[in-house]
Design a protein around this nucleic acid. Structure first.
Length: 472
DNA sequence: CATGCATTCGC
DNA sequence: CGAATGCAT
């Protein structure tokens, strides 16, 4: 038999390593709850993980098999489990992010020491790092060139799910009873603040099919409007692997065929472009693992971050007095998810207006986002901070007031997340930082005063970045 | 408000 | 080869 080690591929359908192994021998699926990995987790993410595990276990049990859930260090658990069951091979799907890549190297070494065969394949993205590259060098650092090649390259079909016959019969295995999926508190985590949508196969398929039959056709026009609900919301499923990238792409092909007009077709392509962004960032991190903590493109001298603890606390709490910033920061806590335009805008506010080191923002996202991916979040934060691979110019600073007016004209998104402003008219909300203090107190006595003046802070930020550029 | 990246052009 | 071009969530 072959051991399939599940990691960020919590599904039986469209799972490449699983499908390949199934052709060779009976499968024993296993997931390892590794304390060294859990150290970097957070309540909301562990809650998602446990839900997805329970769902996957049920999927296997429906097929007369089971998912073994083992606690311990993967480098010990995987070889010993393979040896105990006399497995011919251990297979898994690649994870290119820093910590996982290190762990996998250690597991490979341990397996080799035991003389156990192993194999890993690319599954979480269409084109693996190194496969899309410029004429010279191993990866692109500018997205548009990457996109041209990604878009035109042929995509694989979804991988078939293993049949009942291909799965090891684990129905009576005492191991299954001996390794119940632990609870959040058993793993030492508090209940999360957020209550994110279900991380299950049914929820993932439902989301994908709903999105690809309707909203995808308006995606190009509406994706930047947080109140419109036109984004796919597939990020959490892609992160945990409750949906496979090939499944998603196939639905975009169907959507393209069914598209009513040229605008709708372009909209489908606009969505694919976002799928490509995700893969672009995986490549960037795979070839630049140090950028998890280091600036991608450094300035001549270190950036003089202000790092004011009170301002950071206000940003975290969603109490900055800038309505759309606060809406985003509160959505983060309540949903474990934030609309992407708002992610960019709150990131700009933290790194530019408040001049707080992007790593602080990254850590906060890492704690609260159910869909946190090292690759996407590091790249996103560094882009916002103008330290990224394809950084926005340092002098480009989001204007939170303009962004609010432009993308949330009716203030529906703001009001949904900032109840203090529920009864304040949209035009007042959008000019909030420019109103008189008395008027603000009258309109929304419980809502905070703006903690900074954006115009001043913008100037100061640009000056700070210029200083870092010139000296050295 | 710049600059660097990736490609294509021109010598 | 270097210059010119197009372009950047």
């Amino acid at each position: 038999m072959i051991v399939h080690w599940h990691r960020k591929d919590l599904r039986g359908v469209d799972n490449r390593a699983l499908a390949r192994a199934a052709q060779a021998d009976r499968l024993v699926p296993v997931f390892v709850l590794d304390p060294t990995i859990l150290e970097y987790a957070s309540p909301v993410r562990v809650a998602c993980l446990l839900e997805a595990l329970a769902d996957l276990r049920a999927w296997y049990r429906d097929r007369g098999s089971d998912l073994l859930v083992v606690r311990g260090n993967a480098r010990e658990v995987i070889p010993s489990l393979a040896a105990e069951r006399d497995a011919a091979r251990v297979v898994w799907n690649e994870d290119y992010s820093g910590l996982a890549a290190e762990r996998d190297e250690a597991v490979r070494a341990a397996l080799e020491e035991e003389g156990i065969d192993h194999e890993s394949v690319t599954d979480g993205l269409h084109h693996e790092p190194g496969s899309i590259s410029p004429n010279e060098g191993d990866h692109y650092s500018v997205f548009s060139y990457f996109w041209k090649k990604w878009r035109d390259r042929e995509k694989a079909d979804p991988a078939p799910a293993p049949t009942t016959d291909e799965l090891a019969d684990l129905e009576d295995a005492s191991e299954s009873e001996a390794n119940p999926i632990p609870s959040l508190s058993e793993l030492g985590f508090d209940e999360p603040d957020a209550d994110p949508p279900a991380v299950t196969r049914d929820a993932a398929r439902e989301r994908l099919e709903t999105f690809c039959s309707d909203a995808i056709y308006r995606y190009a026009d509406e994706r930047d409007v947080p109140a419109a609900g036109t984004t796919s919301r597939l990020s959490t499923h892609l992160k945990w692997g409750t949906i496979g990238p090939r499944e998603v792409y196939v639905e975009t092909e169907r959507a393209l065929e069914d598209a009513p007009d040229e605008d709708a077709r372009e909209s489908v392509v606009a969505f694919r472009r976002q799928l490509a962004f995700r893969e672009f960032y995986v490549h960037l991190l795979a070839f630049n693992p140090e950028t998890v903590t280091e600036d991608f493109s450094g300035y001549e001298s270190d950036l003089e971050w202000r790092n004011d603890p009170d301002e950071l606390a206000a940003w975290r709490a969603g109490e900055t007095g800038y309505p759309i910033v606060d809406a985003g920061m509160r959505q983060l806590r309540s949903e474990g998810w934030v609309h992407n335009r708002v992610r960019m805008l709150v990131a700009s506010f933290l790194t530019k207006d408040l001049l707080v080191d992007w790593r602080e923002g990254y850590d906060w996202y890492r704690h609260y986002l159910a869909d946190h991916e090292t690759s996407s979040d590091v790249a996103g934060w560094q882009w916002a901070a103008s330290t990224g691979a394809d950084a926005q110019p340092y002098f480009r600073v989001f204007n939170p007031t303009k962004q609010g007016r432009e993308y949330d004209p009716d203030a529906a998104y703001i009001r949904e997340h900032v109840p203090e402003l529920e009864d304040v008219p949209a035009d007042r909300i959008h000019e909030w930082p420019d109103l008189d203090t008395e008027e603000r107190a009258e309109l929304a006595p419980d809502y905070p005063e703006p903690i900074v003046d954006h115009a001043n802070r913008r100037e100061e930020a640009i000056a700070t970045f210029e200083d870092a550029r010139d000296e050295g």
